[in-house]
Amino acid sequence: MKKLFIKETLNSPKVLFDPAKKRYEIAGKSFPENSRNFYQPVLDWFAELTEAEKSEKITLAFTFEYISSSSIITLKQMLAKIKSLKSKGWDIEVLWYYEQNDPDIKEIGEEYTKLIGLDIQMVSKT
């Protein structure tokens, strides 16, 4: 598994996939002009996982402040891909962090669980 790092900007989140340190996170604001282009490297990363990497546990943490509607659509596709990989034997856990006073972000995580049927762990930030 290769390392993937995309620096956070005013309209796009930090992406850090670091297999050596077992850290997988996407955090920040997500409203890039073209969310499909922005998240394509992440979608490619999942597409390049090999059979040999099935034994590696991946705990992916999402911590969003804001998500635009176009990002919500692209993230849905990413989570559907993760569900597909899980059903084929890859060990991927998804954590969805939200602030207690931010019901909107919490709701988005819950909607993904309903829509995709993926087990997403909701985690309240203290």
């Binding site: 969310s35 659509i73 692209t74």
Partner: peptide, 22 residues
Amino acid sequence: YLEVLGNEQYSVKGGAGLGLIT
């Protein structure tokens, strides 16, 4: 909103429909 999110195919221009509902 959930119907559109559940069924919408991503287009090149992205997010048509979901943005107005949001």
